[in-house]
Write a protein that binds this DNA or RNA. Structure first.
Lengths: 348, 348
DNA sequence: TGATTTTCCGCAACCGATTGTGCAATCAAT
DNA sequence: ATTGATTGCACAATCGGTTGCGGAAAATCA
């Protein structure tokens, strides 16, 4: 079975009494070659299952047809969704994806960036680590004429095409939905002050409240550091112990929301009737717990797709094409953790 | 910044007044080259940041340094753990990983297999789709001298190295732990009859019970089809409605266990005091729910590592090395869903 | 000193496909 | 019939390393 020698152009040429160059051109229907010869060659190639040697083609064209993907961590629903989108879109255009993890550390990020540089990828998609505050190691790609696209966790210090989620609008939707469902005292457990996502979500929260003519007290804003379930639990306790406790809690993340719900359940506070809860990210577990968790869906798959689309555009059309920023919608998913109200007008 | 022309051996040779072949050999410290010349060349190369053109090297050596990885689905904690292990091990040896999804469909599996074949990967790691019952499309790899390693979801019809988890021992541990913790009436919600994993776990369940001198009635065995939370809920209801309901339920999967716990909570049946629950797989969500879920950990990362190790061995040492099967342990993780008992001797 | 071995390096083919250039044969035009 | 344009294909260089072979210079030996 194992044919020692893969069929090459030379073999076909010899067999057909043609020159290698003629065979090569015939296979791509070059106008210089007569219809008859083209048919002859193509028939022969098909019959003998000729497959061009990718290694040779890539070498000649000086292209690897590989794109690098640097993400903070692989075992994570959101990021693996992104990966999935990238792979699908890349494969569709004949590219492979080399996945690297930064583990949220800038040192690892530098290391894998260097590795990708050495392996001569045709382009790179990156979602920055939490630690990354300067991007000199990424600018080397640009210096080497390797296009880069940033996705989700981006830096404005680095001028590339970007694909992000509209955190503001997602948060705005969530909080508006609270209000339309009859909740009035809405608290927010937010993320770190130096993270763009958190700030945008907070902004969405604040704007929605303001837009509806309501207001919030500073007591209603809690700042997470690690975004853990424990923090959610703890802040829920603090919030519910206030003289005027909230009747709704918007959480920066599903995991935090879970901690909140755990506390509420333990204290026999009814969700959604006494307190409504909305998270962010649409983790699988939100569908599983009870009551099921309302959340804002981040379209990871679509982020990956779009980022790849932009990257391939750069690769094909050159570095000088404009650096657009694509903003994808983050949409509210209403589940049981928010009470139904006839006031809801289906606007969402 | 962007140096149009990457430094090549020819450049170094010209600059140093040497032949290209000499430079090439010097860089790999070939004994034919004098110490002085080697130093001269290496210093120059380092100073000017010479990086060999991987495309050229790969072409010459007829190697891609790519390995393919075919898995059912990417967005899944277990499989992404495997991926993570594969990538780490592969990168450590200078290989890249091309990830493909079969989406649990044999047609997709065939498609990506063909794609990997055409892209001339140096080797393939595969975890079969649920639909796969014949492996002719995979034997093409062997015919093309491309080594294959199977991981987790394997077929005995295909003679390759394999890496699997000891489902039997994991289940045995779980059920033994139930017994040592004082549970006596242990039910099992199992998976499909035609899936090897399910059968092994069932076998572990049955053997553990038998070994402790206990027995189970057929009423205590429920067979899932889709392994969903809903099925868990439903079967829990059936089990708890029996004349003699169980005091412990061993579930084939964490998700099923979750459905069970949901039912028990709704009926105010205390976990773990009235009924103990153990799942399988160690999903993240098991740590998050309350009570936290005891489960059997499947070492996905280690599976990936080991599979890659075996594959690289094949790639380097040739196809004729023996096809071993590596069995990794699946270990019990005790959490709150099983009651503590002094009878537990720390054996686990 | 001449013969032989060893040391060190250059020459050139090669991997397989791509592509610019050149040239014969065919065809059209004057 | 002679010139000019067009068609259809072959030749050969090229991409950047790798590697077998051969040969000059230096070192060792007789």
């Amino acid at each position: 079975m194992s044919e020692k020698h893969q069929l090459t152009l030379k073999d076909i040429a010899r067999e057909l009494g043609l020159a290698v160059s003629t065979v090569s051109r015939a296979l791509k229907s070059h106008p210089d070659i007569s219809k008859e010869t083209i048919k002859l060659v193509k028939d022969y190639a098909e019959k003998h299952h000729y497959v061009p040697n990718l290694l040779a083609v890539n070498f000649r064209k000086s292209k690897t047809f590989n794109i690098g993907l640097i993400i903070p961590e692989l075992v994570h629903q959101f990021f693996s969704s992104i990966i999935s989108g990238v792979i699908k879109e890349a494969n569709q255009h004949g590219y492979n994806v080399m996945i690297c993890q930064s583990n949220e550390h800038v040192d690892d990020e530098k290391k894998v960036a260097q590795a990708l540089l050495n392996s001569r990828v045709d382009g790179v998609i990156i979602s920055l680590s939490n630690e990354t505050d300067e991007v000199s190691h990424l600018k080397e790609f640009i210096a080497a004429d390797i296009p880069v696209v940033q996705v989700d966790k981006i830096s404005d210090l680095f001028d590339t095409p970007k694909v992000i989620v509209n955190d503001f609008a997602g948060a705005y939707q969530a909080v508006s939905h609270f209000i339309k469902s009859g909740y009035r005292k809405i608290a927010h457990i937010r993320g770190r002050l130096n993270v763009q996502h958190s700030n945008e979500r907070f902004r969405g929260y604040a704007e929605a409240i303001k837009h509806e003519g309501l207001s919030y007290s500073e007591d209603y804003i809690k700042v997470c550091d690690q975004l853990t379930e424990e923090e959610g639990y703890e802040f829920a306790e603090q919030l519910m112990s206030l003289p005027g406790p909230p009747d709704a809690i918007f959480c920066v993340t599903d995991l935090v929301a879970l901690g909140v719900m755990k506390y509420l359940r333990e204290k026999n506070i009814q969700v959604p009737n006494q307190v409504g809860v909305i998270g962010f990210s649409n983790w699988k577990l939100g569908e599983i717990i009870s009551p099921t968790l309302s959340t804002v869906h981040q379209p990871g798959y679509e982020l990956g797709e779009k980022a790849t689309e932009l990257l391939l555009d750069k690769i094909v059309n050159g570095m000088d094409s404009p650096n657009q920023t694509v903003v994808l919608n983050a949409d509210l998913i209403v589940r049981e953790s928010v009470k139904n109200s006839p006031a809801v007008d289906g606007h969402y």
